[in-house]
Design a protein around this nucleic acid. Structure first.
Length: 570
RNA sequence: CGGGGCGUGGCUCAGUCUGGCAGAGCGCUGCGUUCGGGACGCAGAGGCCGGAGGUUCAAAUCCUCUCGCCCCGACCA
């Protein structure tokens, strides 16, 4: 490619709204241009990078026996009615009607579409397992797109779906998929990707992992132990907190006039917040009242609680709902509740602590020495606590650290969450009708590109890994007006291209600094400078983008040297 | 969806308070000088000041309503 002909201006000043490194450089370098909030066009540079990422993803999917397909972006809403997600997914699913007034949606993920496909194509256990994948546009009507290509409304995603005769087969395949993901992210040059256990969210299913590219601008918070053995999303991170349990003391009612909050009550009674129990009331998706209790210094983790209750939605209960079960807002006690009307879940911190201060179910009074085992033996016990930085790691006991990450991929064991309601079946060896067990596996292509920049850049621009660089070699022809320079650069360009390398040649008549800055923004790993000075010695200057190497090369050595460099790096 | 901010040439912004010729830098075109980390001179092109109403002799500027975009939060395979 001659740089003079490349569409996509490099620009000196980034738009004001570009905050993160990847956003700034994708705009400044001419990789992508905004069309609307969270909707971008990719320019040739950006497309070259994503095409390389896609090629790697494709190879790795094929390697685990994936078969590439392509499903439509526009889908009939009735498929989503069948699966039940039309009701459970919110406004991020873009719904509209076609000219015949038929309800349609824009696919934000393709479980329904693939099950619809498979239920007519797969009918026997002999056809299982199978995995289908596509690299396709998705649309999610995000409430708040941000950070350039990291959080967008329209995006390209590799999504894969596997079908198995039983759970054991899924689990075995899931491990292969996990390995393929690790290889994929390593190959595209993401140095720091964690695979962490995560909450399955709207996808449903039991086991899932998120692949997090560590980056300070990431929107997800990850807890890791110092040795890296424990890694979990904040939504589900556990802690190894130990609790004290003295021998039980008799319950005692004490006056706490006007004190409602944990801090006020603890201060008034001269104890630490850890010695108190905190009560929180929720209403689940069916408006059933839930009483959650946790040690005073901890916070309820609603994701954990939601999963424990198997309720897709939770919201804080209002005062009327709280009174309905006989509790006194602000002074609620786990004792004397109407157990017919409220479900009680206590955190481990309550069950395993003793002699706590709790509400007395009466204004201006609390109880001392609440002892869960004695006073509330029938309570459900669960881990519903939000992990905090510095809490002991559940595996190692060392203090947990907090990192920020970009979710570049995820994998889920779905089970029959889609195959069952959509009546996708096969006949097993005994001629019995069965629902295939499914897994699904996603990788955000644009997000991966952005994450690579976040992890690999300097103040001047991206430092692309060879595997995904838009060009491998960048030639700067300094003082290009001199015929000997233009000729030498042209010849190098032709020879390197002929040797199979991807080369961009800056053939413009620009100042050196101007050309170098553009080269930094394009970020090709290898750079050659041709100038009257170097040609006088029959040489060109060679330099790597990452600063690791610099040398003068004789003209005759350039092609073999570059071929060798590229081969080594791939 | 709540809170905050911003819409003036392709990009960054000034001008808005206090109404009176639409401006600067970068980028773009031409000519000349320069030529190893974003050079300089001269001459140009490019704008319904987000949109619609209103007030006024006169509106980028004041008023009303809208639309778009960004940031924080809520939400989020």
């Amino acid at each position: 490619m001659k740089l003079s002909q490349l569409v996509g201006q490099r620009i000196k000043e980034a738009p004001r709204d570009a905050q993160t490194a990847s956003h700034v450089f994708m705009i400044r370098g001419g990789y992508a241009r905004p069309v609307a909030a969270g909707i971008y066009s990719l320019l040739p540079l950006g497309r070259r990078v994503t095409a390389k990422i896609e090629a790697i993803v494709r190879q790795e999917m094929n390697r685990i026996d994936g078969q590439e397909i392509l499903m439509p972006v526009v889908l009939p809403a009735e498929l989503w009615e069948e699966s039940g997600r039309a009701a459970s997914v919110g406004p991020e699913l873009l719904r509209f009607r076609d000219r015949n007034d038929k309800a349609m949606v824009l696919g934000m993920t393709h479980e329904e579409a693939v099950v619809h496909l498979v239920r007519t194509e797969i009918s026997s256990y002999k056809q299982l397992p199978c995995m289908l994948y596509q690299i396709q546009t998705k649309y999610r009507d995000e409430a708040r797109p941000r950070a350039g290509l990291i959080r967008v409304r329209e995006f390209t995603m590799k999504d894969a779906y596997s079908f198995h005769a039983d759970q054991a087969d899924l689990e075995q395949y899931y491990r292969r998929a996990h390995e393929a993901y690790v290889r994929t992210f390593r190959r595209v040059g993401l140095a720091e990707v964690l695979s962490i256990q995560s909450d399955a969210g709207m996808m449903g299913g039991a086991v899932s992992h998120e692949f997090m590219a560590l980056a300070d601008c990431g929107e997800d918070t990850v807890f890791v132990s110092p040795d890296g053995r424990y890694q979990a999303n904040r939504e589900i991170a556990a802690t190894g907190l130990k609790f004290d349990k003295d021998s039980p003391l008799p319950l005692e009612k004490v006056a706490t006039p006007g004190r409602q909050s944990i801090e006020e009550v603890a201060a008034f009674l001269g104890v630490r917040p850890e010695a108190a129990g905190k009560a929180v009331f929720y209403l689940d998706h069916q408006d059933e009242l839930v009483f959650a209790m946790i040690r005073g210094d901890l916070e309820v983790n609603e994701t954990k609680l939601r999963n424990h209750l198997r309720s897709p939605q939770l919201r804080l209960a209002d005062e009327a709902a709280i009174r309905a079960c006989g509790a006194e807002p602000g002074y609620a006690s786990p004792l004397a509740l109407d157990r017919e009307r409220v479900r009680i879940v206590v955190d481990r911190s309550i069950a395993e602590s003793g002699n706590l201060v709790v509400g007395a179910n009466q204004p201006d009074f609390h109880l001392r020495n609440f002892y869960c085992e004695r006073d509330l033996p029938t309570a459900e016990v669960a881990d519903i606590a939000t992990a905090r930085v510095g809490d002991p790691c559940p595996l190692t006991g060392e203090p947990l650290q907090e990192r920020r990450g970009i979710e570049v991929g995820n994998i889920f064991q779905l089970g029959d969450k889609y195959s069952r309601p959509m009546r996708c079946t096969f006949l097993d060896r005994d001629g019995r009708e069965q629902f295939p067990v499914m897994g699904c596996y996603g990788i955000g292509i644009g997000r991966t590109m952005a994450s690579i920049i976040e992890q690999s850049h300097d103040q001047y621009g991206p430092i692309w890994p060879m595997a995904v660089a838009p060009f491998q070699v960048h030639i700067c022809a300094l003082n290009n007006r001199k015929p000997e320079v233009a000729e030498a650069a042209d010849r190098l360009y032709a020879e390197l291209s002929e040797a199979g390398l991807e080369v961009v040649c800056d053939d413009r008549n620009e100042k050196a600094g101007f050309m170098f800055n553009d080269a930094d923004l394009i970020g090709a790993p290898l750079r050659l400078v041709v100038s009257p000075k170097t040609l006088a010695e029959n040489q060109v200057e060679f330099k790597t983008r990452d600063g690791s190497g610099k040398a003068m090369l004789a003209l005759a050595q350039v092609v073999p040297a570059m071929v060798e460099r590229v081969r080594e790096a791939l």
